[in-house]
Design a protein around this nucleic acid. Structure first.
Lengths: 130, 130
DNA sequence: TAATAAAACAGTAATCATTACTAATATTGG
DNA sequence: CCAATATTAGTAATGATTACTGTTTTATTA
């Protein structure tokens, strides 16, 4: 029950902190493997889940079949490029008020929302077609 | 390439139209099986995907491990109850303008957003604790 | 209506992300 | 250092979804 330190968990957290592209579990695995060649994918998954449950990182369900992870737990939103698949952060003003809009006339309590934006990123926009 | 009619596909679409609770593929399978006892789960998946690709239904990724399907393709939002897991429609004013907010200072094109709300539904709210 | 081509099917196997299991190892408090 | 226990590596299992294959339906044309 009590949490014990583990080098692997620390390496996973540290790796995530260096990345702003919200990697998937297998990307974390591939990278942390360089430092700990024997680490297993199960350990990566277990620690990502543990860190997410503790609130130290965020797990993102983006509908692309794999979960993504983000060491930035502050309130912010994500953009997914439909061309290159990249996930990036958006700097935008709060849209918390949509919770209130959702609550109007709704018989229940709105605790929060999940929102992500999609489109074409700047880099893909400026590339020649095909 | 050309689409051909199929009784199974029609039954799947019709079943979805009778439901407002955004069932998963296995729920669709269980129900359509009453009318077509030999229908296979693969047929259900194939047709749900086909219908979604044609824009006749919507596929919802809600992060609960299974995709949900909705015959209502009009612009609207969903609420997921964290207690009972039910998915319900929200009648709320448009929040399309959050796309513009997201685009401010972003080097790319925002094409749209996915948003769903969560909390406790009316029915679960009024139940006694535990 | 019969013949033919193509799409769709049922049934089953495969895939892929994720989780569970287990014996061995690492961490921690005394 | 030692015992207690959390964590690990490695592997097996799970669960949702997709792919494959031989058979059946649908649609077209004669």
């Amino acid at each position: 029950m009590a949490l014990k330190y583990s080098r692997q968990r620390e390496a996973i957290k540290e790796f995530l902190c260096t990345r702003k592209d919200h990697p998937t579990a297998d990307v974390v695995y591939a990278n942390v493997s360089r430092q700990y060649p024997n680490i297993s994918l199960g350990t990566v998954y277990r620690n990502l889940t543990l860190l997410a449950d503790m609130g130290e990182i965020r797990r993102l369900h983006l509908g692309d079949g794999q979960d993504h992870f983000d060491a930035d737990t502050s309130e912010h939103y994500h953009f997914i490029c439909q061309k290159c698949g990249r996930v990036m952060d958006l700097q935008m003003e709060s849209i918390e008020k949509i919770n209130d809009l959702a609550g109007v006339g709704f018989d229940g309590q709105i605790a929060g929302h999940i929102t992500y934006f999609y489109g074409v990123c700047g880099e893909c926009s400026t590339q020649k077609q095909q």
